[in-house]
Amino acid sequence: MHLFIQDVSKFFGQFQALHNVSLEVGSEEFVCLLGPSGCGKTTLLRIIAGLEPFDSGTLKIGERDLREIDAQHRGFGIVFQSYSLFPNMTVAENIGYGLKIRKWPRDKVDAKVRDLMELVRFPELAERYPHELSGGQQQRVAIARALAVDPALLLLDEPLSALDARVRAEMRTEIRDVQRRLGIPTIMVTHDQEEALTMADRIVCMKDGRIEQVGTPQDLYARPQTRFVADFVGISNLLDEQTAAQLSSDLLDHKPEDAATQLLALRPEQLGLRPDGDGDARVTHVTFLGNISRITVEWHGQNLVSEVHSDDPFQPGDRVAFEVRPAAGTWVRA
């Protein structure tokens, strides 16, 4: 089932939280809303869930206008960052809650709950209370609870932000797995670009209530269209036309004729370094990251960042020269 969002705007008093946002989500797609805090991504998710009204635009699922259906009757699943499990209900009761509301017979509820508990991998915890579970387990229960009602759409509001790093990485694959298997269209809000890159079919990058760019993770990383995306998704060296020409005049060859495109976004791994006693660049910092090292280089009063294999020995103070392929980088709107 498709979700259509067209020209949706939202005001909080004088403040416009969303500016004519348009988006489509396909029937089995996993879409991430990515952006810094205050960019409107959570507001958009809450509007889709029906928890927040919107001021103008269209919101439809399939052929049905969602304005006519309130949150209670949309039949969407939602998972919050704070788990939001009922503290007074067991794991099984939590998962079966939506079915109980729908007046399913008891034995069918039980069977479904059992199924879901296996899906989220801990059938033995049925009679526990939420406070007896770890954060990761609680979030699994919350996901199972949301899935129990066979939601037409699954909404995840920063579901992994409260978890520690290792559990978070585990849950990424798990959520994606379950989503693929059940084929539920899913929208996840996150401010973590790594999370978005690893999980999403498509990423919607937002800033100040507007969509900056929509695309696959590869798209967003390799072909950012704006300075913001280039900077927010991964790290970029942003060079103006003159500086880029100084680095290598070849880089100007792939500059589009569009007047608004002004900056070259060059990924650190695209900026090669070679020791050169006569080079006009000087290493200022070396950050060891394991297999690679991040090298900060001062060059004509500008700091550039390069990532090189850790085997290449660079020390602060070293004179270096750049190695850049002619096709490297993307020209973005400033």
Binding site: G50, A71, Q72, F80, S82, I101, A146
Partner: peptide, 18 residues
Amino acid sequence: VPKSLEESVTCLGGSPLQ
């Protein structure tokens, strides 16, 4: 009482009384 707990009930199909 976390607001999101109430919202969970709503999204799971619960009425305001529920």
